[in-house]
């Protein structure tokens, strides 16, 4: 009983800290027309409320028709990428309180076809990702009972490990200025993944991958704006990966 009371007290104390934010949600349906309308909703939030929580709150209580894609709510699945106050972010990984604004505008990510409202079609990104052969290429891939594990030194792991953290959320492609004009560009996500495997000492598919990215719409179209690295929620640095790959193609790296 005493425990319950404390919980209730905490709960009431927490409620008193809640503030109100105006959540502007971009609503569009390309199947009907190309018009994008912004609808505003007043949402109460706490210090820990994420943008995704607020959107789901709107969806639950104010407008059921808001289309949003999400799954894990912990920046692992990469489903809830969207533009929040003009910057590509994960809605589940962005607290309203950290935005430091009374108005939060959410829009679908740039450089992707819109499915509806905040949902974009990520198919092209997954296609270019597959194009990079995102798997170990070597003849003895299968570990047989007599074979050993493919050992690596910590230095060898360090070469690529941050690039293995990519969750395919697509924020980097959304922030990329080249992607905005060149629809055939492979994009920072795919190029970073190409580097992830090229730099892996266990992999033997380096030449195949370098051939794929050495295209008129491949690695050379990157202008090194660095916005891909700025927006990555997992701390991956695709811009650096791209420069490293260029090193292989220019003969500075072996």
């Amino acid at each position: 009983m005493a425990d319950t009371q404390i919980a209730e007290d905490q709960s009431s104390a927490e409620t008193s800290t809640s503030k109100i934010v105006t959540l502007r949600i971009a609503k569009s349906n390309p199947e009907k027309d190309s018009v994008t309308k912004f609808e505003s909703f007043q949402v109460s939030y706490e210090r820990w409320t994420t943008v995704l929580d607020a959107i789901l709150d709107v969806k639950k209580h104010l407008d059921h028709s808001v289309a949003v894609r999400y799954s894990c709510r912990q920046a692992t699945c990469g489903s809830c990428g969207m533009k929040i106050n003009g910057r590509p972010r994960l809605a589940c990984f962005t607290k309203i309180s950290e935005l430091d604004s009374d108005v939060v505008t959410v829009e679908p990510m740039s450089n992707y076809p819109i499915v509806r409202d905040l949902v974009v079609d990520l198919e092209k990104m997954f296609d270019t990702h597959k194009e990079m052969k995102p798997f170990m290429v070597r003849e003895d891939t299968e570990i047989t009972p007599n074979s050993r594990e493919l050992l690596q030194t910590p230095e060898q792991v360090e070469e690529y490990i941050q690039f293995a953290n990519c969750i395919k959320c697509g924020l980097c492609n959304s922030a990329c200025p080249t992607m905005a004009t060149d629809s055939s560009f492979l994009g920072p996500q795919a190029l970073a993944q190409a580097y992830r495997y090229v730099a892996d000492s266990r992999d033997k598919g380096k030449n195949e991958r370098l051939k794929i990215i050495d295209d008129s719409h491949g690695i050379w179209r990157c202008h090194f704006a660095g916005s891909c690295s700025q927006v990555c929620p997992k701390g991956v640095d695709p811009a650096m990966g791209i420069q490293m790959l260029r090193g292989y193609l220019l003969g500075f790296r072996k």
Binding site: T181, W220, R221
Partner: peptide, 14 residues
Amino acid sequence: RVILLELKQGKSYE
């Protein structure tokens, strides 16, 4: 050539 390739895409255009 690079600028024009980034501006527009298409086999015959390229």
